[in-house]
Amino acid sequence: MKLSRDMHAFEARIGYQFTEPALLVRALTHASVSSPNRKDNQRLEFLGDRVLGLVMATALLETDKDASEGQLAPRFNALVRKETCADVARQIDVGSVLKLGRSETLSGGRRKMALLGDAMEAVIAAVYKDGGFDAAQELILRLWGDRIGRVEADARDAKTTLQEFAQARGEQPPTYVLVERKGPDHQPEFTISVQLQDGTEGRATAGSKRQAEQAAAKSLLARLEQDK
């Protein structure tokens, strides 16, 4: 199989040239455009998630040889979660080479966090199957770059941190409410409000409910830090 010019440009962006180009094509094929003769990237995504996890666990152990499991776990979660994979995917412009069905394309699929994160994991698996673990490890460490060294020791997603804060004060879990949804279907904006039991509130707007909830929780945590 010969790759298109765009695919060759993508190989250059990730710093890896495939000996079996079909693996790369499959890694970038979403289920919305798959067929009996055109496999999607879901199985590769499953494998890539595990390869990424092993590489990150190893890297964290080598980066901080004195850290406890309790310190390492939140750092690990911050590095392998879907949002981080999507950020890396945007960095190398995975969206421009994703193979999507028409409806998914029209709904803004090339910008969706979940699709980008899944594709990034699939690309990792494709490199692993094409070049082995060392090639996949090199790719991951290069693309994640200084994220590994600067991930905070107490890195947790903001929603989890806020919930733990409420529990520590003997309060009910934070309440998340959709305040507003606007914009077209292919580029929506969600405004989320999060409140603690005492009425303290944070708000944020993002392109998905999940991102807006995380941003609202982060906003409220920042407010609570200022009020100390």
Score class of each variant (00 low, 15 high):
R38H: 12
A86Q: 09
R81F: 14
F10K: 00
F133I: 07
T29R: 08
R223C: 11
P184Y: 01
L221Q: 01
D64R: 15
L141H: 15
Y128P: 02
V177W: 05
G53M: 09
F76V: 11
T58V: 05
F133H: 01
K39L: 12
F133D: 05
K39Q: 07
A135C: 09
M56R: 02
E83Y: 05
H30D: 14
A89T: 11
E20S: 14
L3C: 05
R81W: 10
L60V: 08
A22G: 00
K112M: 12
Y176W: 13
R50Y: 11
Q91W: 06
D134T: 15
Q163I: 05
A204L: 10
Q211N: 15
M1G: 13
Q17D: 11
E201C: 13
A114C: 09
A78S: 11
A125S: 14
Q167D: 14
V97F: 11
G199S: 02
D157V: 08
S32C: 11
T19D: 14
L28M: 08
T205E: 12
K209S: 09
V97P: 00
V25N: 00
D49L: 14
A158D: 13
T161E: 13
R203P: 03
A114F: 05
R111K: 13
S219G: 15
G53R: 15
T161G: 06
L3W: 06
Y176L: 06
Q211R: 12
T191V: 05
L224C: 08
G108N: 07
Q195G: 04
L72H: 09
Q211Y: 10
A206G: 07
F190S: 03
G101H: 10
A136Q: 00
L54F: 10
D198T: 08
A59Q: 04
L28Q: 01
H8I: 11
A73C: 02
K228M: 06
K2G: 13
L54A: 15
G202V: 02
A125K: 01
S4H: 13
N41P: 07
I148K: 07
L196K: 04
S208H: 09
Y16C: 08
S96V: 06
E152M: 13
Q137S: 13
T175H: 10
M120A: 12
L28N: 09
L139C: 01
F10Y: 08
L44F: 01
I140P: 04
T19F: 00
A126I: 10
L61H: 15
Q214E: 14
F46S: 11
A155W: 06
G117N: 12
A155E: 07
R181G: 04
T84G: 12
L60E: 04
R142N: 13
L100D: 04
D64L: 04
A158P: 10
A125C: 15
G207I: 10
R50K: 15
K182G: 13
P74D: 05
T160E: 13
A73Q: 14
T160D: 03
A206T: 09
S219C: 14
P36N: 00
S96R: 02
G207D: 11
L139Q: 02
